[in-house]
Design a protein around this nucleic acid. Structure first.
Lengths: 133, 133
DNA sequence: CTGACTGCAAACGTTTTGCACGGTA
DNA sequence: TACCGTGCAAAACGTTTGCAGTCAG
């Protein structure tokens, strides 16, 4: 029983070979676009359909297993839902990394200023990574 | 000479009636989707084309006059580029507001942790607005 | 065994493109 | 006047849907 299979079972989704592959690819890459998911999937499942990928991605997002991250001026990527973190995108090579930065202070501040009850925060930074500098 | 006309001139774009209208609508609404822009524009320019709106929005974004804000689980909105601020979206009514929260601390922290040189930050929060609570 | 999942093809909504006409500087 | 912007129609894209066959539980 693989890790991906377990994740699927926990979210009450049938563990088909396609789904297992999708999850392990997201896990492996950290973040991945639909396009890359499809390309890489074709190597192992030559007749896989884009429709299948979309259907599964949508279901997994619905079940709270994965989440779509919209990136300014770039394609969306998908990631497994884990601990809160923020994203940083390299302007030069496009790489996306997670960073475990605490956003509590900002949220508290925003709640005070806005009067909103805040449920979730999405933070994306853009800059230049150490390798591209 | 209107404010919108000035903004266009500053960015070396010809001040056509359609462009002036687009900018004044973004200014008026703060944030607006392409769809709403088009609908409202039709009232004043019954034969305006969606193609014209897309072409202009893309040019204005390219010139640094406006910016696209991608919202989780919702349509993108466009805003004039002004002082840094973050966005908060109401889960219940969908309203989007700007909040002038300082993000310097988070950025410093992220730079330290990641080794990146950070150029810009995008922060979107979701929650419930005072009216919807 | 049965309902859920897959792959295919067609449909859909959004965004882009090419072109002839019209308007701004 | 020269060039850029507009509107129209068609095309290109990304995503979704319906359906018949297949598979996981």
């Amino acid at each position: 029983m693989t890790e991906s299979t377990l994740l699927l079972k926990e979210h009450h989704l049938k563990a088909t070979p396609q789904r297992i592959k999708i999850i392990s690819m997201i896990e492996e890459h950290g973040h991945i676009t639909i396009e890359d998911l499809y390309k890489e999937m074709l190597e192992q499942f030559p007749s896989v359909s884009l429709a299948t990928i979309y259907k599964n991605i949508n279901q997994m997002a619905q079940s709270g297993l994965i989440r779509e991250i919209k990136i300014p001026k770039a394609k969306s990527v998908f990631e497994l839902i884990k601990e809160p973190h923020l994203h940083i995108v390299c302007d030069s090579c496009g790489k996306i990394e997670d960073i475990p930065v605490e956003t509590e202070n900002i949220i508290k501040e925003a709640e005070k200023l806005s009067g909103y009850k805040i449920n979730e925060s999405f933070v994306t930074l853009r800059g230049t990574c150490p390798e591209c500098r």
